[in-house]
Amino acid sequence: MTIHKEGYTTIALSVLFIFIINAVVDYRYADITWLKWLIYLFSLFLFITVLQFFRNPSRTFTNGENLVICPADGKVVVIEETEEGEYFKDKRLQVSIFMSPVNVHINRNPISGIVKFFKYHPGKYLAAWNPKSSTENERTTVVVEHKNGTPVLFRQIAGALARRIVWYVKEGDNVTQNKEFGFIKFGSRVDIFLPLGTKVNLELNQVVKGGITVLAELS
């Protein structure tokens, strides 16, 4: 397991904060043993927590020309027909994966193809399970066209805790299945929009792994 590049600055700042708070306690409260140990334990907990936020575990990915692979770790919270109003402007099959703070936060391309559309939207930070988060929160929208002509839309959505979305793609890019397309710091949600009638291999509340779990099959 390695640490993702998006965590380098946050981890460095966390180490600096831990060093300062421990130095202050050691200097001003050297005689209060219980307080020193409390701060030591808090510092250890904070450091481990930040490290796990940015972990990048080694994985054997699932690949398949007509497979849609889960773009993120988390739990399936939505499988439903809905109106997609930004790009398709018609009914699509939506699958949403909620990323908790303990999940790996890397986002991966669910299919290979050409990026036909990309847009970043500044916005609010509603809780990720709020239905309005899909249209009102800070988010990105990516549409990749499969080589068979099928477009798949996936959207990074910030939540109440996640305050920074990072993306690595732009319109015209040729992307590869399971390669990183972005990162959401401290978790949130990823929505995928598929053509109606697509065979979905997931169930509500199922725990999934990005780059491993098969989400759907394209016809």
Rank of each mutant, 00 (worst) to 15 (best):
H121F: 15
T10Y: 15
G197Q: 14
L67F: 11
I157C: 08
Q177T: 06
T60N: 13
I79Y: 09
T49R: 12
E84P: 06
V144K: 01
L161R: 02
T213W: 02
G7Y: 10
G187D: 05
V104K: 02
V78S: 05
N130S: 11
G123P: 10
A158T: 00
I39W: 10
M99N: 03
L44W: 13
V207Y: 15
F47D: 10
F117W: 11
G187F: 07
I165F: 00
G211F: 09
V104S: 11
V15W: 09
Y27D: 09
Q52M: 15
R189F: 03
C70K: 01
T62Y: 02
N56K: 14
S58V: 12
L46T: 14
Y120A: 13
R189M: 03
S219K: 13
Q177K: 00
L218S: 03
V166R: 14
H105A: 08
R59P: 03
A162W: 00
E86F: 14
A162P: 02
L194S: 01
L13K: 13
W34L: 07
L196F: 10
I11D: 06
V24C: 15
G149C: 04
F186H: 05
R155A: 02
G113S: 00
I111N: 00
R55K: 15
I192S: 01
E203V: 10
W34M: 04
D26Q: 14
A160N: 02
G159W: 01
N178I: 05
K185L: 05
Q206W: 13
R108Y: 08
V175F: 00
K89A: 09
L16Y: 07
A72L: 02
T198F: 08
K89G: 04
G7W: 06
M99H: 04
G159A: 03
R28A: 15
K91P: 09
V15K: 13
Y120V: 06
I192T: 10
F118T: 05
G172V: 05
N178Q: 03
I157L: 09
D90S: 11
I18M: 12
Y87E: 06
I69H: 01
N63R: 06
Y40Q: 08
L13F: 12
Y27P: 03
L51A: 15
I32M: 13
V50I: 15
K185R: 15
I48K: 14
E80A: 13
T150L: 00
A127P: 08
V102T: 15
I39N: 14
Q206F: 07
E171H: 04
E6P: 07
V190Q: 01
I20G: 07
I212Y: 08
P57G: 08
Q206H: 13
Y168K: 12
V166C: 11
V200S: 01
T62M: 04
I3G: 12
E84R: 03
W34Q: 04
N103H: 11
I3P: 03
N148L: 04
P71R: 00
V115W: 05
N130T: 12
P57W: 05
K209Q: 08
A128L: 05
T198Q: 04
T49V: 13
L204W: 13
W34T: 07
D31I: 09
V76E: 01
G210R: 00
S96M: 07
V25C: 11
T33V: 08
